[in-house]
């Protein structure tokens, strides 16, 4: 049982609870003998909050049991701990970089236009995934952007974002 699972079930409890409080405003509205707009969500949220609470309790019990058992065996497991931590940190770094790359991509897309932002994103995403071969890093973004542009902008005629100002002029060169 990982700590993350305990935290996630606690987040579920908070989420369902918070939304249930929001639902209170919707209850009581509507005509008599009619199921108002708040009743169904309240039913779902109450069930969700109760089940999440149950899951949190179960996870906490498992987590504490495992931690107690782990404490008794610390000397045996200590040797491999540093290596595992390093691998986990590397995974976290890669995932975080991917998330940041995508977030930046969708934030700059309406302003920088599709061509430029897609090329940059492809490069950033591959770099985040620890791709270091120069021919892949240079060739793939150009190829991917060109392929996507041909299929979606030319063939399907999707109005992909062009960007603003100079970027829009740049995009108009392609579509």
């Amino acid at each position: 049982m990982k700590k993350g699972e305990v935290v996630f079930s606690a987040v579920c409890v908070v989420f369902f609870g918070f939304m249930a409080v929001q639902t209170l405003e919707l209850l009581g509205k509507g005509r008599p003998s009619e199921m108002g707009s708040g009743s169904w969500p309240m039913l779902l949220l109450s069930a969700g909050a109760m089940l999440s609470l149950g899951l949190l309790a179960l996870n906490l019990i498992k987590f504490l049991k495992k931690r107690n058992a782990g404490e008794a065996r610390i000397p045996a497991g200590a040797a491999g701990g540093a290596g595992e931590d390093g691998a986990a940190a590397s995974v976290r770094k890669k995932v975080s970089l991917c998330i940041v790359a995508l977030l930046l991509y969708i934030l700059i897309l309406p302003y920088a236009g599709f061509v430029l932002s897609t090329g940059l994103f492809a490069l950033g995403c591959m770099w985040a995934l620890e791709e270091r071969r120069p021919w892949v890093l240079v060739g793939s973004p150009i190829l991917i952007t060109a392929l996507v542009l041909v299929v979606f902008a030319k063939f399907i005629s999707m109005p992909l974002p062009k960007g603003v100002g100079l970027f829009a002029d740049f995009s108009r060169l392609f579509y």
Binding site: L129, E131, S140, I144, V148
Partner: peptide
């Protein structure tokens, strides 16, 4: 290369949602 494949899939997802 999987890195290029992954980037291409993400771009397709963005276009799909857009």
């Amino acid at each position: 290369p999987y890195s290029a494949f992954s980037a291409a899939i993400t771009i397709m997802c963005v276009i799909g949602a857009f």
